[in-house]
């Protein structure tokens, strides 16, 4: 069964983390398990899981395994509904217990000098959708959820594109258009298919930044949610062609 913190226990954990984050988040072992109230503070959710998968994070290659981890986690937890997966009690519990070592390795537990970074990765910070994209474990599930292609042979083709670069995650997933499957999928698909052409003109991070802004600007005038995939692709193709034209003028 999938574990989760009770609301009261989560408040206690957050309170301790606020005061003692430097000491607590540099520990090798999950510190919440040594709290006296842990027995009543962690419940079984009754969401049946055969076994939670191992998440891997190699030292010196912290981002490289994001896509594989996202796919593994989502495959095992795809029965979660969006409401269940929006629950801080669940993800904070997993980050502090089952995935404590992963979370510390991935987010460098030692960088717990500010509570801000601890709060973002081990809890939910703020009330908007960004909190889901930043919690160390929730981001993996939501990244796969937002990009999975249920009817394709390679269901996670776009998940791998999303997690291939932190700028793509940030500029595509954390902007409001990231909520729209058609737009998000089309932008990732276009980036994947045209990567050789893109990187001849821009690093892929800069491409994600600029096209993210571009799509936002377009959404200021057009009803973005009404666009189909080929219309989104056309916007990006026009932009890429403009980059090529600029280059030929300057050279």
């Amino acid at each position: 069964m999938l574990p989760y913190f009770t609301g009261d226990f989560l408040a206690d954990v957050r309170s301790i983390a606020t005061r003692e984050h430097q000491a607590r988040y540099s520990q090798e072992e999950p510190w919440v398990l040594s709290l006296p109230s842990v027995a009543s503070g962690i419940r079984e959710s009754q969401i049946e899981v055969i076994e939670l998968p191992e998440l891997v994070c190699e030292p010196g290659a912290r981002t490289e395994s994001d896509a594989a981890n996202a796919i593994t986690l989502y495959e095992r937890l795809q029965m979660l509904s969006p409401v269940q997966a929006s629950d801080e009690r669940l993800w904070s519990c997993l980050a502090h217990t089952t995935y404590w070592r992963y979370a510390r390795a991935r987010w460098q537990g030692g960088s717990a000098e500010s509570f801000d970074s601890v709060e973002r990765r081990w809890f939910f910070k703020g009330s908007s959708m960004e909190r889901l994209a930043r919690n160390g474990i929730a981001r993996l599930w939501w990244g796969a959820y937002a990009t999975v292609l249920p009817d394709e042979a390679d269901r996670y083709r776009l998940t791998r594109v999303l997690f291939s670069n932190t700028d793509i995650q940030f500029h595509y997933m954390e902007r409001l258009f990231g909520k729209n499957r058609t737009v998000l999928h089309s932008a990732l698909d276009y980036t994947e298919r045209n990567l050789p052409r893109i990187i001849r003109r821009k690093p892929v991070g800069a491409w994600a930044n600029e096209t993210g802004k571009l799509i936002n600007q377009v959404g200021g005038v057009l009803q973005l949610d009404a666009l189909n995939a080929s219309e989104v692709g056309e916007i990006l193709e026009n932009y890429l062609q403009r980059l090529y034209r600029q280059h030929s003028v300057h050279s």
């Binding site: 409401v83 889901l132 990231g178 729209n180």
Partner: peptide, 12 residues
């Protein structure tokens, strides 16, 4: 357009 501010639901 129905949009949930706290998760990724947004549909026309």
């Amino acid at each position: 357009v129905v949009e949930c501010r706290q998760n990724f639901y947004r549909r026309r």
